[in-house]
Computed example of a mutant assay.
Amino acid sequence: MGLSDGVTQNFFLLSVSDFFMALVTMINGVIYILMTHFYNDESGSSEKNTQILNPATIMAVGFPQNVSLITTVVIAVVRCCCVAMPLRVKYLLAASRQLAVILFFSANAAVVLLYAVVPIQVTFVDNPMTNSSLAVLVNLKWLTYTLFTSICFYSGFFIVIVCIIILATNVYRSSHFRQNPLPATPRPKRGDVRSGM
């Protein structure tokens, strides 16, 4: 069905955002290995660059991570609605509406994160004892960043948990209804007039 199908579209968006999140995380891991094992304590330009890139990748991973979270929440809500109201979900939650919701909330999350991280400045604090410099982030709006990420993630997890509970309850009711045998209708006797004999 291609990307016109809502399920395929959402899982494609989820895989793309997860790919970028894994890529940024891998870059951060490589930078951390370079900082801790390959660069010495002398304050060279390479070490300073890695000290800048390390927090930059940590902040950058929040953008694809929010897209993954929002897409996961949309998938959970759609699956829940497919079970709770199967006849109306196709019209209420079309693929275009699902995409619009994902893009709307992802764009809002990106704006809030940019508001928190754009004013960041990096200053290097020299340590004459070890003859090294340490990168320190200043002007980061930590309160905005931590409040937004906490509210976003905990709200997303809460919605997913509620959807799972609704799904499990509906599936349990359906399976319980199927397992209960219907009351047996009495079979007509051989000499009964209604049996046609």
Rank of each mutant, 00 (worst) to 15 (best):
G196M: 03
S106C: 04
D126S: 08
S133I: 06
T169E: 08
P181S: 04
S150W: 05
N108L: 15
N28W: 10
E47I: 14
S46D: 12
M21A: 09
V160P: 00
Y154Q: 14
T130H: 07
E42M: 07
S133Q: 14
I102E: 11
E47V: 14
I58Y: 10
L34M: 15
T50V: 15
I120Y: 00
Y32M: 15
E42K: 15
K48I: 06
L13A: 05
L87I: 11
L103H: 10
L143H: 14
S195L: 13
F63K: 13
G29Y: 01
N54W: 12
T72F: 07
M21Q: 08
C81S: 15
V118M: 09
A168I: 06
R97T: 08
P183T: 12
F105A: 00
P183V: 13
V83D: 01
V112K: 00
V162R: 00
V117S: 05
A100P: 02
M129H: 09
N40Q: 06
N170R: 05
G156I: 04
A94R: 07
F19W: 09
S174V: 01
V112N: 01
S195I: 09
A94E: 12
I166S: 06
F153M: 06
T130Q: 07
G156A: 04
T71P: 00
I120S: 03
V117W: 04
V16I: 15
N131M: 02
F20Q: 14
P188Q: 06
T130S: 09
S175K: 05
D126L: 06
G62C: 10
P119H: 08
A56I: 10
T144C: 06
A60W: 12
V74H: 07
N54Q: 13
C82G: 14
V111A: 11
V67F: 12
C152M: 09
F177P: 03
Y172K: 06
F11Q: 13
N49M: 10
R173A: 02
F157T: 00
N10D: 13
T146Y: 10
H176R: 15
A22H: 10
